[in-house]
Design a protein around this nucleic acid. Structure first.
Lengths: 348, 348
DNA sequence: ATCACTACTGTGCACGTGCACAGTCCAGCT
DNA sequence: AGCTGGACTGTGCACGTGCACAGTAGTGAT
């Protein structure tokens, strides 16, 4: 998006779409009145309003967003910026659920969503001018790793942005919306303990992501609360992928063969864990109970279906959009933490 | 996107980004010369070019796309339009792979991708004015069901568009890019037969989608070619979802218990089929060989991993973008059929 | 009758750019 | 010397809109 490439040739000067002037002429009023009606109709007589609306319908008038942008200095669109390696996220059902929710939420405000990926340094350099030129009014940022340079860059440009998940290592206030990872983890571990399990292991996420950290912290906290000593041999660190879940589970089964439950920090990893358990000849949940996290579509497709913690993606995306619009309207940053929900299926 | 909502208030008149005039002043040339450099630098002395580039770098100038759009009558962006029920597509790994590919391909042309969903009639009404007002220069259309009204609407607006997969029931020429479904199906069935299987069943896709039709046709054709009578009891029709694959497989196992192979028209359905087979106490591939279609990420995560047909999504998205740009530049519609590839794993 | 105020309407200007056109300059030819 | 044509440069105009401002008409209070 460096804007240095040659433009393609102009649309042929055929019949142009109607302008605000055409509408004004048809309605027998001036440009200004039509504009006022478009802005909500304050200080416009109801007769004029009706005439304008009739003319708009008749001519099929649609406002020219480019012209509007030029004068209002606003883009009239919002970016969904994926600042993570593409491979992982495009395969992660959480991502697509979030994307879908944001598209829907933005559509209600007539704001087109521009999808931008910036997983590599080269891509980030590429989109930097696009963002700093304010070609979007705000950014919905998906970036979980600690110290993502995108956060700094966005702050420098002064562009409003809202993160999905708490950005780590940021001193200043940053708007973000997240599920309550810690409470979710606590709820799952509590459920496992109250189901009569005694040796509860965990497979957590990367320790430079908020989810990885807080879900592990919740696990640890709940154990401590119940008077159980935290044992690092019962902890494995994966990367949220199916493959890593399988590897971690295999590791746990050898290093601590007496475990009777495992809390896995993502459904994808939990699916991998189920594979490892099955291969070891153990049964779920009889020998080992498995608790997942996310309640993504895979959760109901595993064997057995996963007991898991539901992340409220619809509400997360909705709140991200709401917070972003608030910032665009001049409000300061805010953080929103949403509750999770235990979904009991058959794996625990 | 009706454009009748009130605008949000304007960006504060703070320090504005540099304009082409600032660049001209800094470089000691006129607006026109800067503009020419931006367009590629024809008929501009190398001294001027260097001066302009230096000024651009120094000021951090980025072209104002709104102003450019206004004068060129081009939006400078492209829509990725998903005209299918959201639930299905956002969970379909094929969709995200395609989306990812298109984002990448468009980024190379400095064209932002606007993601639009139009699964319901209400949504279609909503985005219609957005499209007819030419707020994008073209549309990458994902719509497989027969008689999708979006195709007609796009044709009426005169907006260039390229479909992913052949649109069914269209008499006039429509640009589309697709994998060679028929050949892919034939290759899989050929492989199964040559592995020594005799009773090959199939679970195909909806018969109002090109994939469903052509994969079934390929299956049938290959059987006929090998002198095997087409038996409708060996055919089940699913909807590409995991659940339907499971249901179809169950049905096949009761109606034709002597089958020793099954060609499933999507990996997701194949995964469901594996579940049904396992539940029936049969082994894969020993008792029943299973062949999938797509080579989506799930294919390597099933048990056992799927032998499947790879769809060339990277090339499909690349060609869709290329065809769309060609159309935007005035060329006529074209169709592109890309070859598939047999990927042998353990399920067959 | 005058004034103040409200409700509504019309108009000039600016937004930043690309394009067409009109120049200017210089080399090479007659 | 004069002419021609190419290479390069500068400038007026248009794109469609929102906003600030100025204006008009009508109402009610003094």
């Amino acid at each position: 998006m460096t804007d240095t490439e040659p433009r393609r040739r102009a649309r042929p000067r055929g019949k142009r779409p109607p302008t605000i002037l055409d509408v004004a002429a048809h309605a027998g009023v001036s440009r200004g009145t039509v504009s006022r009606v478009l802005q909500g109709g304050h200080n416009v007589s109801s007769a004029s309003q009706e005439a304008v609306h009739a003319a708009i319908r008749k001519l099929g008038y649609v406002v020219n967003r480019a012209a509007r942008s030029l004068v209002t200095q606003r883009a009239g669109s919002v970016a969904f910026l994926l600042s993570e390696p593409q491979e992982r996220f495009f395969e992660d059902p959480n991502f697509t659920t979030l994307l879908r929710g944001c598209t829907t939420a933005l559509a209600e405000h007539d704001l087109p969503l521009i999808l931008i990926t910036a997983g590599t340094e080269a891509e980030r350099r590429r989109i930097a001018p696009f963002l700093s030129a304010h070609h979007v009014d705000g950014v919905l940022l998906v970036s979980s790793h600690r110290g993502n340079p995108m956060v700094d860059h966005l702050r420098r440009t002064g562009l409003p942005f809202v993160c999905c998940g708490k950005p780590l290592g940021e001193r200043d206030a940053v708007s973000y919306v997240a599920a309550n990872d810690r409470e979710g983890a606590r709820a799952m571990v509590r459920y496992l303990l109250e189901s009569g399990r005694n040796r509860v292991a965990t497979i957590t996420g990367p320790q430079d992501t908020p989810g990885g950290l807080e879900r592990l912290d919740g696990y640890r906290g709940m154990l401590t609360e119940r008077g159980i000593v935290y044992d690092t041999r019962l902890v494995a660190v994966g990367d949220y992928s199916r493959a890593s879940g399988e590897a971690c589970m295999q590791q746990l089964l050898t290093s601590a063969p007496d475990i009777d439950a495992v809390f896995v920090a993502s459904d994808l990893m939990a699916d991998g864990a189920l594979t490892a358990i099955e291969r070891a000849g153990l049964r779920v949940p009889d020998d080992i109970a498995v608790g997942g996290f996310d309640d993504s579509p895979v959760a109901s497709a595993t064997h057995p279906p996963l007991t898991t913690i539901r992340q409220p993606w619809a509400r997360i995306s909705e709140m991200m959009v709401r917070q972003l619009l608030a910032q665009i309207d001049g409000e300061g940053p805010a953080t929103v933490i949403l509750p999770t929900e235990l979904v009991v299926r058959e794996s625990a």
